[in-house]
Design a protein around this nucleic acid. Structure first.
Lengths: 272, 272
DNA sequence: TTGCTCCTCACGTCACGTGAGGTGGC
DNA sequence: TTGCTCCTCACGTCACGTGAGGTGGC
């Protein structure tokens, strides 16, 4: 015979509320051992307390229900450990993101004293280049950018490329407006030859408004705002893709504050 | 004349999506400077980019919309700084809670090798005591407990009380079942005299099942589970309030692993 | 028998994202 | 005129909490 207890008793034992236990039953995370077919009463086996204890701790660590389900269903201790470790790594990344967000807030609050960066105008000539493109969600763009930039720098060395300028990027406005869109990173070269992951393109000529952003890419909205303000003040019409050029990046220095990014927003004079 | 831009342009400038901007308008966090009465089109002043920048950074730090509204409406820089600092403190506390949750998970995963703590039976005699009571939410109980326990220890000294036993607690089962209920902490003394915040009570006699929990209060569900299991195995009926006695607590050692808490769950033999 | 426990809906929360279906502006 | 931008609903998400209204069990 299995020893079972009522929801109330099980709630007191596990410090999970009755409402929470009902929810875990509903989503199939922790199902009572037996349900009285007449009254609908839930009966939990006392052995289920160990599952409840693990669930409570993983929820305290904000692990999603679906992931906890995987942990409970894990076949081996190693598999279980792997899933848990993956979540702990995820927490570390969250923590690092928070640390950087605090820095970004500080930067903003301190920047009021800074001289505003000037905006200029210029025509970017057409450029042949070797490019890596993707359709991506805005949340993932920073990670993709970091990885791909490094990859392109490595490619320059391994393929003996002679770059005719700094590595650049092309971003669809939809990326900012709708949180998803296409992104491209490219090395300008004389005669691009496609590789497994990079393809030859020609970056078209464009008349642009230009600004240089100094610092982390997390703060790049500051420069975008200034550029947009310039464009609005001069009654220009902004184009649907934006270019960036990485004048100083991770390949030059690990101190993000010294990074320099040139942002070029294509514009056309508005019809009067 | 104010220079305004469309939502799309403003989204690209601030890196906030159009959907997000519409939501911020709806909840009154960031209202467009002008709305075309005919088309309903939103027009943002370029100056509003600074508010958008602050909002984006505070949201990255998970500050609730309502709190961000307060920051934006702050009258002075000092007031604004105070609100922001309060949130950063809150983040620190969250971080500490996460750190402790990781420890608690480790404790659980390592505890499988431990000898299970034995459960005993005993009658607790009636005790006069000086008590502090409150109706509280389960989420706040750990903080309240820490503060009040310290307060009672201080009271013992300042009022020259001769305690007839360790400080104890009485908890309504509703606290665990429904996430809210009454909690009491008490010092057993011969002739309790009420103070501003403490009142005399008599802890009633009770027949109880008893376990000693060693370690942090975060892990006390482990002991509760064992007690509940014992009660179920012996077909006992559990009472609606649970007592705890703090045999070793923060006043003895700051190393939580050395804390000892005796948990007494009132029981009556079930009618056959 | 009383009152306590337990049950099932339905709805609310928070900060948006996802369509559907339709209109304005160049 | 076309197609692109913008609009407003209505609904979904996630992990529960909050009642309302009703029944089972000792």
């Amino acid at each position: 015979v299995i020893t079972t207890v009522t929801v109330g008793q099980f709630a007191t034992m596990t410090h999970l509320s009755i409402k929470t236990l009902r929810y875990y039953h509903q989503v199939g995370l922790l199902e009572p051992r037996r349900i009285d077919p007449h009254s609908g009463y839930r009966h939990y086996s006392v052995d289920q307390a160990t599952d409840a204890q693990l669930i409570r701790r993983l929820r305290d660590l904000r692990m999603p229900i679906a992931d906890i389900r995987s942990v409970l269903l894990a076949q081996s201790t190693e598999q279980r450990q792997t899933l848990i470790r993956a979540h702990l790594d995820h927490l570390e990344q969250e923590l690092e993101a928070t640390r950087l967000a605090v820095l970004s807030l500080r930067t903003l609050l301190d920047s009021s004293a800074d001289l505003p960066t000037p905006v200029t105008r210029g025509t970017q000539p057409a450029q042949p280049a070797l490019a890596i493109s993707t359709h991506i969600h805005a949340d993932d763009v920073l990670d993709w950018w970091t990885d791909t930039l490094q990859h392109l720098h490595a490619l320059t060395v391994s393929e003996h490329l002679t770059a005719t300028g700094p590595i650049g990027g092309i971003y669809d406005e939809a990326l900012f407006r709708h949180e998803a869109g296409s992104a491209t990173l490219f090395i300008p070269v004389e005669n691009p030859i496609g590789t497994t992951d990079a393809e030859p393109i020609v970056v078209p000529e464009a008349d642009t408004a230009i600004i240089i952003h100094r610092g982390s890419h997390r703060d790049i909205d500051l420069a975008y705002s200034r550029l947009g303000t310039y464009i609005a003040h001069h009654s220009l019409t902004a184009g649907p893709t934006i270019r960036e050029q990485y004048l100083r990046d991770a390949s030059h220095t690990s101190d993000e504050r010294q990074w320099q990014t040139q942002i070029c927003w294509p514009v056309t004079a508005a019809t009067p």
